[in-house]
Design a protein around this nucleic acid. Structure first.
Length: 154
DNA sequence: GTTGAGCGTT
């Protein structure tokens, strides 16, 4: 979420700075290219800041309505192989429901995967995933899939 | 490139 938001901000700033650069060129300004690009960067930063100030409202509203309509719940997924990635988890849970979010827990210090993750998906799919994936063999290990205890979402 | 029970991070 935060990463995609940051990427969007960065992309918006970049695009708008280029826009400012070309618009300055359209005005026929004969200023040095460096200052023109600097002005474009300034415009891009201001516009990007405004965009980010407006963006979370609509985004939160959309996600809230989506979460409320689908009824998401998070699952605790443990005993995962260390070489598993978000795509593997997504592929595991995708057949049972709509996977909204995947958070892989890694060690805060070493940034390494700790072997368990949290998957947020719609409640029906969550129950189906628990029924089908819990205590099942995956890559030589017994998968643990249960409802998460904390950080629950309404 | 390391590890193996575990309910978390921005």
């Amino acid at each position: 979420m935060s990463f995609s938001c940051f990427i969007k901000l960065f992309a918006a700033a970049l695009v708008l700075s280029l826009l400012g650069y070309y618009s300055a060129g359209l005005f026929g300004m004969e200023t040095p290219a460096g200052s023109v690009f600097a002005t474009g960067l300034l415009i891009g930063c201001v516009a990007g800041g405004l965009l980010v100030a407006l963006y979370p409202v609509s985004s939160a509203d959309e996600s809230d309505t989506d979460a409320a309509s689908s009824g998401t719940s998070n699952l605790y997924v443990g005993n995962l192989p260390f070489n598993a990635g978000p795509d593997d988890i997504k592929n595991l849970f995708a057949p049972y429901g709509e996977v909204v979010d995947i958070r892989m827990v890694k060690d805060r210090r070493s940034k390494r995967f700790k072997g368990y993750a949290f998957v947020e998906m719609n409640s029906a799919g969550a129950q189906a995933a628990i029924k089908h994936l819990d205590n099942n063999d995956y890559a030589g290990r017994t998968l643990r899939v249960n409802e998460a205890q904390k950080k629950g979402e309404a």
